[in-house]
Amino acid sequence: MFIKRALLSSIVLATALASTAFAQAGRDYISIVGSSTVYPFTTTVAEQFGKGGKFKTPKVESTGTGGGIKLFCEGVGAQYPDVANASRAIKTSEIDSCRKAGVKDILEVQIGYDGIVLANSKKGQAFKVSRREVYLALAKTVPDPDNNQNLIANPYKTWNQINKTLPADKIEVLGPPPTSGTRDAFVELVMEAGCSTFGWVKSLKDVDEARFKKVCDTVREDGSYIEAGENDNLLVQKLVANPKVLGIFGYSFLEENASQVQGSLIDGIAPSFENIASSKYPVSRPLFIYVKKAHIGVIPGITEFLTEFVSPRSMGSEGYLAGKGLVPLSASEFAKVRKTVGAK
């Protein structure tokens, strides 16, 4: 008898629980989705904002830039996110799909820069490479050294085959998988820049962009480039274990692990805080957050959250985000961003 009653009551309870979900209408916390690169910064602001005590701590999901913007663009209403983190600017195709779903007004806020570094263990020699050399080391097909116009399968096995001054070690680079925003940025800023140093490839860009992308963006698959997953901590550990291997990851991880790994000089410029902030370092990218204007005033706290985000104590050059590895905007850019947000 007891079992029968327990069974019945638990079924009743379960259905009652399930039905509470449908009563959900508004939302009293900000919902943020998007890039895993921006995640550490947005979460820090969210936490500070939550400690202010007036509003609940925003919820931040790490979905990747593309996935985040897709969710963000699904519509207007409490079940859709209010803010999207992005490690690249929003694409026109994404703005179009946003518009189709009724998301018309989007506020773009640039929050700072991130540098992508090529690093190795401190036990090894510091690397000095150009973007052209990195391209030659990692592309699937490269221009034939004998006849520049020909493309051949990448013949380089060791670094000194590309440039005699580089070490005679096997080319082995650990980097992010294609789903990652870091990979997108690396391909665009290093691979495309490197292969554009070949005149005819560069002119290809205007004539046949698809072929240009194929030549420049395709990374070799013969074991010299190793996809290391999205976990950058693991990558750092692997670099420490093998001093001859290079790794590709975001600047904040280099800063945090400066006692174990060193950044390579790219085109003669070291990946330092100052060089990234002044855009001297060639492999840096802007980071953004996108805000749905239709949600401002509907979901409580969005304006206040933005004010906290663009305040000097967070985004400023001495702010707490700089402490987390964000490379801040220049003074004039910062003033401009503050103006667009409407912060006093």
């Binding site: 959900q24 969210a46 936490e47 919820k59 999901e61 790490s62």
Partner: peptide, 13 residues
């Protein structure tokens, strides 16, 4: 549910 959540959840929703 893979998200940064500071507040200890207080209800099922």
């Amino acid at each position: 549910m893979v998200a940064f959540i500071v507040d200890v959840p207080g209800s099922l929703s």
